[in-house]
Design a protein around this nucleic acid. Sequence first.
DNA 1: CTGAAAGCGCTTACAG
DNA 2: CTGAAAGCGCTTACAG
Lengths: 335, 335
Amino acid sequence: MTTQRKVSLKDVAKKVGVSVALVSYVVNGKEGSRVKPELAEVIRQAVKDLNYQPDQVARSLRLGTTKTIGLIVADVSNPFFGKLARIIQDEASRFGYTVVFGNSDENIDKFSPLIDTFLNRKVDGFIIVPVENAEVELSKIIREKIPIVLLDRSFPGINISHVLLDNFRATFDATNCLIEKGYKSIAMVAFKYSLNMMHERIRGYQEAMKKSDLTNNISLLELKYDATSKEIENSLNGLLLKNKRPEAVLFASSTLTLEGLSFANRNNLKIPDDMAFIGFDGGYFFDLFHSPISYVHQPLEEMGKEAVKILIDLLNGSEKISKVIMNPKFIDRLL
Amino acid sequence: MTTQRKVSLKDVAKKVGVSVALVSYVVNGKEGSRVKPELAEVIRQAVKDLNYQPDQVARSLRLGTTKTIGLIVADVSNPFFGKLARIIQDEASRFGYTVVFGNSDENIDKFSPLIDTFLNRKVDGFIIVPVENAEVELSKIIREKIPIVLLDRSFPGINISHVLLDNFRATFDATNCLIEKGYKSIAMVAFKYSLNMMHERIRGYQEAMKKSDLTNNISLLELKYDATSKEIENSLNGLLLKNKRPEAVLFASSTLTLEGLSFANRNNLKIPDDMAFIGFDGGYFFDLFHSPISYVHQPLEEMGKEAVKILIDLLNGSEKISKVIMNPKFIDRLL
DNA sequence: CTGAAAGCGCTTACAG
DNA sequence: CTGAAAGCGCTTACAG
């Protein structure tokens, strides 16, 4: 499959009878006083006639910049990440950047090669939802002086720009809200991540419980990200169907919330009559439920846009490390 | 922001004291008998010591191939497209390809520039979920002899490889199934697309109705893709809340199904007690519903994989146009 | 105002 | 077995 040779600067130059340099200047609008106006016009016309399109690969090699952003999320097919990817692509393209993407599945063994691939492909910058133990990989990027913005998670030890949710406040507020409405036995279902973000969500719940002297009612279930359906089933069984089951359950992510709702459906648990569920993110799902559940809302739009904005600044030469913490919103439908 | 200069072939060559040619051969495993085994070993060691990574941009320019696939979907944040994007990225990376992506929003004005951008960035091939009136843009790609595979939709007039659902059969079977269970007044909610794929879905419904002498009961609502919530609300109101409302409604896409379910929730329509709903795709949502609805299942995994497989063949020089029609599956939960 | 030329980092005939 | 060199298409000092 031989690609038809496209028209190059040389072709345009030959047609007009000038050097490639002049054509390049005109194409890039860098004529200044370098090209005689009439000539510039002729060149512009030839460019149009021949439908000349600059070869971005050649430009990239010459300029050392690819106008490409590498995006790594856990899984684009998960709407949480899909929405982020969507917003990031939109924003990036407004600034002339193209997005290459990859899915980590929360797995460093998939994460790592993605970084290498993107690095070799010379992406200008990264927007990354990092996985556990990603520090070494991230340092590699920093060492190469490639701008990078972390999204959704960060690492206390590394000084990188990031856009995060105020995770502590998210669950702290949600738990308090439950407590105020009279719920006492409140459980939490979380992922067993070493990620700070998950720790904060757990801590928010625990602190709220402690603050109201409900320490003894703290009940935390931590599921592995790659848990099998069987394992999840068993764990939820243990938590939700025991004789003294909780009055309310707080989920620490949209995926977990969906698992919970699915479990409830299968086992004829009526939400919220039998038990209150508090979801995390995922309003796009929850609004459609028979009886809509309450949930913590993340401002995905703002988060994605902010991440791109920070990256573009970095790309434009800023040396500033920006750390942005976004406010969660509790969508309350209790009672 | 100056990128630290990475180690190049030249650096390795200098370190070992050979020409860059030899290093290139060794790195690419094209030594054959060209390089003395002992020397090759020394070079390999130096490559490792210096942590040499080939510059893909330079390679691309030289080789005329970027190992990149351009993917265009309507909207990655829609799980239907998100799943496809996910699968395509996974498969592509198995073959050493990276995926750049863009969202069309079913809009030719967003679709068009994406094609141009990807073309200028010299993607090796395209996997595209085309929008209405995309024929001209697609011809442009064909003219440049860039391999391309259409997904989910195609155009009768253009001879391009594609992977589609058997759309006619999908709705024909679903409608028949409803009829067999005694439903007579069956409506359909579709998008007002000129796309063949939507026509086929509508035709499947209409033919099934005709076949059972229910022609007079045919009731088709066609919504614009960019209809406002208000417009959708009004239209669904007209269809679902009129005094002689349909006994069952068949939706022509997952988005439409979600709109329907949302409307039903807001208006206290009990599904399936008040009215049966047949969804299209989107099992990942529907399984979570209070009372799971029936739906047409598309084999997304196979569709995505097949599309990549066909594209890779094309990329490897095959001249064969492959047209694959996948079978839908009706997930029946009626009664 | 204009052109000739170097060089981005690589691969690959070509000559030895 | 090995090296010198051309060339992918572009941008940009440099010299005129």
